[in-house]
Write a protein that binds this DNA or RNA. Sequence first.
DNA 1: GAAGTTTACGTAAACGTTTACGGACATAAT
DNA 2: ATTATGTCCGTAAACGTTTACGTAAACTTC
Lengths: 359, 359
Amino acid sequence: MAVPREANEKLRDAPMRRKPTINDVAQVAGVSFGTVSRVLNDAPDVSAATRQRVLQVIKDIGYRRNRAATALVTSRSTSIGILSDGSPRFGPVGTLMALENVARKKGYATTVISVERPDEESVQAALDTLDDTGVGGIIVIAPLVEMAAALWSASFRVPVEMIAAGASSTPNIFTYSENQELGARLATQHLIDLGHTDIAHLAGSMDWFDGRVRKRGWEATLRDAGLRPGLCLEGDWSPRWAYETGLRLVRENRVPQAIFAASDHTALGLIRAFAENGIRVPEDVSVVGFDDVEGSDYFLPPLTTVRQDFTALALMSMEVLIGAMEGREVDRTPIAPTLVVRNSSTRATSHHTHPPKDT
Amino acid sequence: MAVPREANEKLRDAPMRRKPTINDVAQVAGVSFGTVSRVLNDAPDVSAATRQRVLQVIKDIGYRRNRAATALVTSRSTSIGILSDGSPRFGPVGTLMALENVARKKGYATTVISVERPDEESVQAALDTLDDTGVGGIIVIAPLVEMAAALWSASFRVPVEMIAAGASSTPNIFTYSENQELGARLATQHLIDLGHTDIAHLAGSMDWFDGRVRKRGWEATLRDAGLRPGLCLEGDWSPRWAYETGLRLVRENRVPQAIFAASDHTALGLIRAFAENGIRVPEDVSVVGFDDVEGSDYFLPPLTTVRQDFTALALMSMEVLIGAMEGREVDRTPIAPTLVVRNSSTRATSHHTHPPKDT
DNA sequence: GAAGTTTACGTAAACGTTTACGGACATAAT
DNA sequence: ATTATGTCCGTAAACGTTTACGTAAACTTC
């Protein structure tokens, strides 16, 4: 078997070849390895003087704990696994980056793995791989309901937490998410407050929790306001679909007063369809998006949208997971998104009705 | 002691049982652990019959190799580290996701870590942490030149590869990247081919390799074509800056015939500034972006831009890194981006000159 | 000043592998 | 029959830690 030869040979200052171990430290500090282990773990039973000395030696010879050895004997680890669908969509990626950030700050390394298909087999395989690497807990970013389903029927040995908007917790799997239904309510209520009564929804995919929950928020808000829910078209999040749908709306003369789009990208496609047909946003139709993607403040027009706080979400999720790993109970209140009002939505005007369908 | 005797298929569903070890397998299969180890490593000296039997037992009792133990004794690992700046910008994130994907397909787990500041201390700390987790190699996504500099003066024990557009390789650090200069040349040449002679560049940040190299490509192409490089404004990639710059251009009546923007988001801000002042794209000014971000095909107008192939980049990078880890030499040819022509750029017209400043 | 109590430290065993070595047994060569 | 030659397999040691336990010396306390 080919032994990987040292390709990069830039060693630490000391021309020491082997990585120093706990024994090396013990030797130069003139104590036993047990004592070194104790100072490493902040255990009692070591005098202040020796502790100081050992600490100094550790720094001097550049000792670093071997995680594999620690993991082997303790069978607990200081790394957490993140399982995501491979999608580069805004929400998942934002969550992922934020998670890595807070994990690092809490002293955990993160091992990331993504599934190629959101089915049971792939999910189980990914879970196992994560387990192999010795993670102490796993956070699953599961925007797809199929993936959540796969997770529910999977087996694992460490605490697993799922980030999925509006999915329910099970005894085995904590669920945590941003309160996206609230986000959708905020958006819809904003449109209502502006005086609109005919409020459509250009929904995301119903294969996604996010799509479902945003639609639910829109629907509920309208009902609560005593309004009849308007048109609801379900798509796939893509600008392309939104564009074509927008075109169809125009062609069939069914453009509503106001539209809550399930994502900024969806809004983008829609707005282009309108623009190409001389329908102005927001003068002729108000549009609200969701996500606050980079650049949405410079769309034409700048988009009113809903911003999620991924950092807060990541922080809370980690809190919950680490709590579970340590057997603590953490109370979890969902994170609230905020509405960002810009120029794509405006007050309904009295003459703001579209010509009737037939003449 | 309890002997795990049941080779039941549903064993894994028992939520918290001891993980089977190599010894459990040996016992059930009626061989010694040494033999099991041999079949695990595809070593010779084991008869076909026993190999079969052991393999079956492994499957039956759901045995999985303990990576910590393996890493401990072999001191080589099957995971690779990815170090990124924490930025959620399009390029870095796209690269990250692609890297994870190919690593997984090659049987490597990925440990991701990001630095909070791109300075020497943070980079060294991140490198060390990665080393602790036992990665066999590290890929650094280093769009910031400061980060690359920090990397150059860092020390490490495993092969390190840097993904940085246009940075040079050192004896210690492989560098690999997409040929972004070519991308910039493609964009600029496209504008030249359209008959434009006054081609400005709305550059990205010079703190980024990407910014530098895209500018260089623009400049070189113009010179090669015998044209004088036009206006070059250096910004920070933000739509906001681009917007304000666009406004200033309009105010000072210095809007050029054509503009190569260093990123789609930059182009976005610029176009809005123009739109608000009645300057039409592409009729009055042609704009080309860079990145092909999601939705850029539905901007107003759909953006001509340069698309990078992150998947190919990730594939090649991994090939190079794994090669280095195994002591092989891999030949590396940079990946070529492609130009995506859409509606924001058009042919120069003879009357295509802007009105004089005063009237 | 002997017995108990602390305090500080050393030591052995274990975690789950891989690797190097050695040995049993069968087969082939003499 | 005896020796050489493979096959196959078992065993001991090592990797770098943590944990549980043991113990010498120092302090008490009477």
